[in-house]
Design a protein around this nucleic acid. Structure first.
Lengths: 148, 148
DNA sequence: CCTTAATTGAGAAACTTTCTCAATTATAAA
DNA sequence: TTTATAATTGAGAAAGTTTCTCAATTAAGG
């Protein structure tokens, strides 16, 4: 088993425990793989790299583990244009959406709060920012107003 | 064929033409369906509703049409947690990511420029905002610096 | 050590997306 | 108008992705 250079990887055991989840080699290995990588990894990339640590790891375990780790906040879900299962109408070509997680209502809004921020972030990261994806989740006034 | 109440739907013919794409009933119908809906629609929802207008529409056409419409900016891709094909390490539990579209490098950043904006938007939309998803796309300094 | 409930691997099953290709159709030019 | 042509479509097959099932294993607490 690889050693874990990062505080967060060590913490992982704590976090899992807090949530009543077991700290398995598979979970720690997947976390390690993601932490080591500076690049986008497909599910199969993650499987392959995890197998370098634990050769018997199965694909289903990768799916389950990614879900668990994302749910407890140790990793993040990343959106790619082609890993996207749904679409919505946009009244503006630079439209962002806000989605009600109770009734699935979607509302789009045109303004974008980013211009200044982009400049700043661009300088600090060295990235030339071309595009962004922003989406908000919440409860619409109907769902929030009524008890459920 | 349904009539199109919205300027954007009428414009669609223009936009398609500009891009050298044909203005087909299928494309206009899908756009209409998305425009009419205030809710998240799955691919099958979109197919069903489109078939109410054009009964012979095939599933492959829906996929192709959504791609085309999104590429030319008439609709937007929408992210859902379960319509997500990839994951990345986050050094902070509120981490956002910036992705290099040339080399796939991913960098995460913890700050989030939203707090004030949320408040404001919340008031105007009536949504109680619980969560958000932000991701930036661009070129990392290596890819942007070198000609390719 | 035991016990027990959670987790895993393997492959099957389900589901989603893309591809192929002949038929159709929107468009522009005659 | 009509015609020519290139883009688009529908249908189903193929490919790819994700989830499920279940017996075997294992982490963790007593």
């Amino acid at each position: 088993m690889a050693h874990f250079p990062c505080a967060k990887e060590i913490d992982a055991k704590e976090v899992l425990k807090e949530k009543g989840l077991k700290s398995t080699p598979q979970r720690l290995a997947v976390l390690h793989v993601l932490h080591e990588s500076t690049k986008y990894l497909s599910i199969n990339n993650i499987l392959d790299k995890t197998k370098e640590i634990l050769p018997n790891t199965g694909l289903a375990t990768i799916y389950r583990t990614l879900d668990v780790l994302a749910d407890i906040g140790l990793i993040s879900r990343v959106h790619f244009e082609d890993g996207c299962h749904t679409y919505a109408y946009s009244s503006d070509s630079h439209g962002h959406h806000i989605v009600c997680t109770k009734c699935n209502k979607i509302m789009d809004f045109a303004e974008c709060p980013f211009e200044d921020y982009m400049e700043n972030l661009s300088k600090r990261t060295g990235f030339k920012i071309n595009n962004h994806f922003l989406q908000l989740f919440g409860e619409c006034n109907e769902c929030a107003g009524n008890a459920n």
